[in-house]
Nucleic acid binder design. Structure first.
Lengths: 327, 327
DNA sequence: GCCATTCGTCGAAGCGCTTCGACTTTGATA
DNA sequence: TATCAAAGTCGAAGCGCTTCGACGAATGGC
């Protein structure tokens, strides 16, 4: 292993000088810097991450807690992850992967100084991890919005606005009876923050515009989608507008509607709340409200790093939803 | 931050004794051990990962390079990741996430001693990362099979056998004209290891049983699936058996077949090569050859860690494919 | 009853890096 | 020309942990 000492020797300077060349924290004359950089290149030197972390109390690693669990749409998750990783790399950080069911992982990596900061996805309204996060010395950003975000930074799509937007779009297109097909029952039961918020927004617009509007959970299987569609049309046969917040059930919902002789967009309108790519890949390109996973992931990184730099107070950011008409 | 010294003081022993309690590398009397453990609990002490890495040259972190790129089935990827992470945690290791397009990442985390070992997914036949991997001092496991695996450990489903198995199953069901619908063109063009191997196996059985058999890449969009199905049936109208190795195109392939008036399983047979859950979630539960992502990910961890422990030589493991009949 | 082991513990060295004075040199200012 | 500040570099002190060698005490064999 080549060490900073080897580099120093090769460049004819002291180790601290090499360190300052690397960090730029003190000015170094041009010729010296050149020699050091040359030596670094020649020896293909890489600072030892552990030694660096020990001496500087900075690891340049961000912990990311990802839901690898039932009912979560993997492609949405992947988008978030992609956004986080690419942004983190741009800021010269790496990403340590934690899983949702490894609750102790937060404490472990934080107290063990493995990470400088933590990003948590898929937050529930009263998430049990929140007290833990409050106790850590590392800054934290939640993707999602807990009931009480005090002291914690949060970022997410404004799902409540998305619920309103979806309902309003359907109402604006003349539909008086509409329905929200949501995530699978287990996600709803957890009170996953985004699920609840969409419903709230949807109901808000229902009241405001005095629409008839059903809300139904929806499993991701063909059968589950069938049941959900049938349930809604059983209770409210006149339903002609659907807001579907369930990426994986989407094709099956469309399939069931077709089976029942309902054509999209002639007989019923469907608005999808999902990544644009998913809406485009359906049998009919659907009008959709995008879930911009990569963007949100990137923002989360920016927020958490800026909090690291400058001890800024926690803040919440909700991204405005954007609806793109397609059918 | 509480340090090992604090613990030592609280327990009335020296720091080294605490270290030995933690690592078990020397025998410690029961009473002393109890006192130390009590002190650790009281102070909720966590060893500093960086310090530990520096002193022991072990990070207890595994690097995992994941494809976050076009054409890869996210749910399959997620399964691998889940397998790797859960297995790693069981062995008291964490996982650092690297992305495919961050080729320098391998060198960076390895030379910087951020990881003890590396697992690489989605390997191509002549993967440009392979020379890099050979140069690292950390053990490596590839998920996938490069053309020349010498010196590198590999693990994967035996996709060649899966190609044979799929073709043989269709032939056994009486189909004389069959087709393989593969991954998207960009994946085929990369010569991603699994894509090539399925084709090889498929062609092998075609020759062996003198079947008529088409091979066609398939995009994951509805349109792409339509084109692929039409292309096959254009060239070989008598085709009655399909092996589909493309999870995301699967629903659209079925859709297109239905559009053309071909019923599954009455008129044509479809065998899917994908995770079981995906095959079950189609409009008709499909006969399938499972891609056991979690298992493979777990095996990869076992292999890489056992190589860490005991400097064993590299080995390759191919898991036998299992076909489950459904329609 | 003596020597050789084994057991349990400690002290100290060192892992590779950052960072804080402090020192020397140079250039500008009065 | 004398004085001071700034620029550039170095040495040394840690950061918190592991691990090696050493040492006293307890154990066993003869």
């Amino acid at each position: 292993m080549t060490t900073i000492e080897d580099v120093a020797k090769a460049a004819g300077v002291s180790a601290s000088t090499v360190s300052y060349v690397l960090s730029g924290k003190r000015s170094i004359s041009a010729p010296t810097r050149k020699r050091v950089e040359q030596a670094i290149a020649d020896l293909s030197y890489r600072p030892h991450a552990g030694a660096r972390a020990l001496a500087s109390s900075r690891t340049n690693v961000i912990g990311l807690m990802v839901p690898l669990r039932a009912g979560v749409d993997v492609s949405v998750v992947m988008q978030f992850v992609t956004g986080v990783v690419t942004h983190a790399r741009q800021a010269d950080h790496d990403v340590l992967l934690l899983t949702q069911d490894d609750a102790g992982g937060l404490e472990r990596v934080a107290a063990g100084s493995m990470v400088d900061a933590i990003i948590v996805m898929d937050v529930e309204a009263d998430d049990p991890r929140i007290p833990i996060l409050r106790g850590l010395r590392q800054p934290t950003v939640l993707i999602g919005l807990p009931r009480d975000p005090a002291g914690l930074s949060c970022v997410d799509l404004d799902f409540e606005a998305a619920g309103r937007l979806g309902a309003a779009h359907l109402a604006g297109a003349g539909h008086r009876e509409i329905a929200l097909l949501g995530p699978p029952p287990e996600v709803m039961a957890r009170h996953t923050s985004y699920a609840d918020r969409v419903i709230r927004g949807f109901r808000h617009t229902r009241a405001e515009r005095s629409l008839a509007a059903e809300v139904e959970a929806c499993e991701t299987t063909p059968d589950g989608a069938r049941r959900a569609v049938d349930a809604v049309l059983g209770r409210a046969p006149g339903t002609t507008g659907f807001l579907v917040h369930n990426e994986r059930a989407l094709p099956h919902v469309l399939g069931r509607l077709a089976e029942r002789g309902l054509r999209v967009p002639e007989d019923v309108s469907v608005v999808a709340l999902c990544p644009t790519a998913v809406a485009m890949a359906q049998s009919v390109p659907l009008t959709s409200i995008d879930i911009p996973g990569e963007v949100i992931g990137g923002v989360a990184v920016d927020m958490v790093l800026s909090r690291l730099e400058s001890k800024q107070p926690a803040e919440s950011r909700l991204l405005a939803p954007v609806l793109t008409a397609r059918d």
